[in-house]
Structures are given as C-alpha cells and as structure tokens.
Simulated assay, not measured.
Amino acid sequence: RHITLDEIGRRIALGEFKELNIILKGDVDGSVEALTDSFQKLSTDEIQVNIIHKGVGAITESDVLLASASDAIVIGFNVRPMGNARDIADKEEIDIRMYSIIYDAINDLKDAMEGMLSPVMKEEISGTAEIRETFKISKIGTIAGCMVTTGKIFRNSSIRLIRDGVVIFTGELSSLKRFKDDVKEVAKGYDCGLQVKNYNEIKEGDIVEAFREVAVKKKL
C-alpha cells in the first residue's frame, strides 16, 4: 500500500526519522512556488517534507508513476488528472489531492503531519487511596483495606506506594476487591481491598496512587 494523507497518522516509519514525499502540480508558477515554500516550512526534526517533483500543468501518468515509485502523494492546485492518470492512480492506490485554496492544502498537510509525529507519553493520575488496615494471609501475602480518597482506582492501573510523601514502590496491583468480589474499579468514597504485586511491606497510612501513561499528540 502506498502512503495517503489519511494514513500518515497511522504509518510509523522505521527508525526515528520520517519523510513525506510530495509531487506538486499547479496552474501557474506563482502558486507552485508558494506551496513549495509553505510545505517545506512544515518540515520538523522528525518529519522531512520532500518536494520530489513540481511543475505547471495537469497531473500526468508520469506524475502518478513517479509517485508510485517513490511512495509519494500527489497534490494538485487548480489542476486535474489528464489521460489515464486517474485510472493508474486508482490501480496503484496513489493519493491525489486537489485544492483551489492554498491555505486548505497547507492545513491538510499540517494536520496529517501532526498525526504522523511521534506522540509524547504523559502520565495521568486516576486516583488515590489511603491504606486503613493490613491483613497478612499465609501463602497469599499482605492485603490492604483502603478508602479511595480521590478519583478512581482501576484494577489494571500502574500504582505507586507513597509513605510520608516519598514514593517507596512502583508497580501494579495483583487484586482489587469490593467486599469479596473482584472488581475493575473503585470510586472515591468507597472501601476496597487490594494487593500489590510482589510487595508486602505495606503499612497503615500509606497512600496508593493509581496512574497510567497516555499518548498525547504532538503539535507542530
């Protein structure tokens, strides 16, 4: 499959460096040069925009074949495909985008590239719980009786144990219960029982902080 503007956001190139190849055709030199300058200014450290061919006139078969060979998208400004160019583009699955307003072309490319940028991983705290009592059970370990004090604790969250404001352990839960039932989440104001995977040195007064990593789209 060849690259398309819609697919850019899902296509992760090998390695850290990414390139977007463009074949640009326009009605007059002025619009071609204006778009060339604008597109090249969208290049970042992570994505290089390459205008591999540009010209004045209709989109031709050779433009489409070049796009196929170089995994490029074709952008036309006030021009259309000519002859068999459209049929070849359909067969080769080449993305041809046609515009009549320069800003639309620039904004579409910018939006596509923002989807292509590597996301930043950001931590999101979902909730906290205070350990009110502990129970040591042979062959199982230490179970903590807790009260959820903010947000929600999720069974599949990553967790930190905080004692006197200091993080003493980071890991995950091996169980989360309401009374005797396994549950997926417990909300603020409710009691729960939980067990921390591979860690039994929990104490009354410890705080359990539940968090997860979320991907945040980078902006250009």
Rank of each mutant, 00 (worst) to 15 (best):
I3A: 14
G9F: 05
G9M: 04
A13V: 09
L14G: 14
F17D: 14
K18Y: 13
E19C: 11
L24W: 06
D27S: 14
V28C: 10
D29K: 12
V32N: 03
L35M: 11
T36S: 14
D37C: 07
S38N: 09
T44E: 01
D45C: 07
E46H: 10
E46M: 11
I51P: 13
I51C: 05
I51K: 12
G55C: 00
V56Q: 05
E61F: 00
L65R: 15
L66W: 14
L66C: 05
S70T: 12
A72P: 03
A72K: 05
N78T: 06
N78M: 08
G83W: 06
R86W: 03
I88Y: 12
A89W: 07
K91C: 02
E92A: 09
D95Q: 04
D95C: 05
I96N: 01
I96S: 09
R97K: 14
Y99A: 12
Y99K: 01
D108L: 01
D111Y: 11
E114S: 04
E114L: 08
L117I: 08
P119N: 01
V120N: 13
K122V: 13
E124D: 12
I125M: 09
G127R: 10
G127S: 04
E133M: 05
F135E: 03
K136F: 10
S138I: 13
K139Q: 10
T142M: 02
G145C: 11
G151K: 02
I159D: 04
V166W: 00
V167Q: 10
I168N: 10
F169E: 11
S175K: 09
K177Q: 11
K180P: 04
V183Q: 07
G193Y: 11
N198H: 11
Y199R: 00
Y199I: 03
Y199G: 00
N200S: 11
E201P: 02
E204Y: 10
I207Q: 06
R212E: 15
V216I: 10
K219C: 02
L220K: 08
